[in-house]
Design a protein around this nucleic acid. Structure first.
Length: 485
RNA sequence: GGCCGGUUGGUCAAGAGGUUAAGACGCCGCCCUCUCACGGCGGAAACAAGGGUUCGAUUCCCUUACCGGCUACCA
């Protein structure tokens, strides 16, 4: 039981779930499931300023849609709760542990004012930075007691020695060593009584039995500090897995501006959760067998965190689109129909047409659901088009011939009892042969006449079937008029 | 500024001393075909630069360049 793998996803409830966070959650989930371990959710709401109402619901919904089942979390007690940091804070957990560190001399109270801290900073290279000078480390016990009793605001800082080095190990990036002199005496408990992320994270991960810490690359350079906390407590350091950054096409941090930075943005744009999950898994990792389309179960089976990449990955919406198209093509027809119907209705605006036939026609030609609207809008109404469309070299079609064909085809279609695709195809093929024409010389003008477009989902006869006899003939009549002018 | 990372085609990525340097998306061409799409086949396209080490470096070491992160009482 002690070597049981336990991972956690520990987001801050600050809004929609960013693609980077989604991937972190996914890798965390995959590591746990692959090892038959436990996947835990912890809400890190220690920053009162950035907290967004309802953000926790978004996190839950996203995990649910993505198929990541949570074994332990705010809604599923696993015995090491609470799973929300503000609640843990209220129980005094962090303060208790911070004080333990104070008692052992690994941490100390600091009463420095903002102004004094500000005066410690220097500006160089255009940016401001500075390190705490351990001023309050020199306070006597009486001074500390007086300050505390008089209610002066304070923070608790970690006491990092100025000599020596600290090394920490990451599964992806290897050993990273820094001089302790580079390490600031970071704040453990803020003056509002809340712990900092750095501290709460370490305390919770230990108390909750986390064996593998998966998180973003941005924590890499501050990670040596974490080891100092673990060491100060005498706790075992977990396995660290830092994930590379995900950027936009300009290699900049994925932002709301890019329009697809969060899971919800993506689902709103017509992407399937399965495709999003599959694609994000591939941002920083690749399966050994090169099979890129994978279900969650397949991901679980194949995922090996030791093979995660070091370099940042560009989020390529184009490849996601392709992958989404692959998923759409594999969908169960009824499930697809259900998701496609709203878009079909929106494009048709009440025009009669067989929705089921239309849906299947669209299926091979779309990558996301909203693509449907552009694809079938012509069923509602023939767009204004140029008669140049009737000229097609490969089809050997000309305006003159088109006019003739359309005129002659009217009685043929009028006499057709069976207005379905196969029957119409046979009728028109026979018609072409009879007139000594190539198939395309009939199909091209007919398709153009009923659609007004250079390309359409489905061929001439499929369109005729969907439009029905009356509408088809009306459209052909219009085309004849147009070509006669 | 300091510190820490990173750098294989446009993008995602295999490869870890000797390979014709995989594969996928995208792009281009051909085939299939009642247009388009799907599908099939093929093509163009890469080891950031310079020094070492080595019989031999994309692969190991150093330097430079570029990109990113940290340097918060944000995570």
């Amino acid at each position: 039981m002690s070597d049981m793998v336990k991972t956690r996803f520990a987001p801050s409830p600050t809004g929609r779930m960013h693609v980077g966070n989604l991937r972190t959650a996914l890798y965390s989930y995959l590591i746990a499931r692959h090892a038959g371990g436990t996947f835990m959710l912890r809400i890190e709401d220690t920053d009162q300023e950035r907290f967004v109402e309802g953000a926790t619901d978004i996190i839950n919904r996203t995990l649910l849609l993505a198929g990541m089942t949570v074994d332990e979390g705010p809604d599923r007690d696993g015995g090491v709760g609470p799973y929300v940091q503000s609640e843990r804070c209220r129980q005094g957990i962090y303060m208790e542990y911070a004080k333990k560190l104070v008692e052992t001399g690994n941490a100390y109270y600091c009463f420095c004012t903002k102004e004094r801290l500000e005066s410690l900073k220097v500006t160089a290279g255009g940016s401001e930075f500075g390190m705490y000078d351990k001023h309050c480390l020199g306070l006597s016990e009486e001074e500390i007691r007086e300050n505390l009793e008089s209610g002066r605001p304070y923070v608790i800082r970690l006491n990092v020695p100025n000599e020596g080095t600290t090394t920490f190990h990451d599964e992806i990036y290897g050993d990273i060593t820094v001089d302790n002199a580079e390490l600031d005496d970071m704040i453990l408990i803020k003056s509002d009584g809340f712990p900092t992320y750095n501290f709460a994270n370490v305390v919770d991960d230990h108390l909750m039995g986390i064996t593998h810490v998966v998180r973003g690359n941005e924590y890499l350079s501050s990670s040596p500090k974490y080891n100092r906390i673990y060491d100060a407590f005498g706790w075992e350091v977990p396995v660290y897995v830092h994930c590379p950054l995900i950027t936009d096409e300009n290699h900049a941090k994925l932002s709301k501006r890019s329009g697809h930075s969060s899971f919800e943005d993506l689902t709103e744009q017509g992407f399937l959760p399965e495709a999003i999950v599959n694609y994000t898994a591939l941002l920083g990792w690749n399966p050994p067998d090169n099979e890129e389309i994978m279900s969650l179960d397949e991901l679980i089976a194949k995922f090996d965190y030791r093979k995660i990449n070091k370099s940042p990955a560009v989020f390529d919406i184009g490849k996601l689109r392709w992958m989404n198209g692959e998923y759409i093509r594999k969908m169960d027809p009824e499930a697809f129909f259900e998701k496609a119907l709203p878009y079909i209705e929106s494009a048709l605006q009440g025009s009669p047409a067989d929705r089921h036939v239309l849906a299947e026609l669209c299926r091979q030609r779309i990558e996301t659901f909203p693509d449907i609207e552009d694809l079938i809008g012509f069923f509602r109404e023939v767009p204004d088009y140029s008669t140049d469309l009737y000229v097609h070299k490969k089809m050997k079609s000309t305006k003159e011939l088109s006019l003739e064909v359309l005129r002659d085809v009217v009685p043929v279609l009028e006499g057709a009892d069976d207005f379905t695709n196969d029957a119409l195809y046979a009728v028109l093929s026979a018609f072409a042969e009879e007139k000594g024409l190539k198939k395309g010389q009939v199909m091209w003008p007919v398709r153009t006449a009923v659609s007004g477009l250079p390309n359409t989902p489905g061929g001439a006869t499929q369109l005729l079937e969907i439009l029905g006899k009356e509408e088809s003939l009306a459209r052909i009549a219009d085309a004849v008029k147009k070509l006669s002018e």
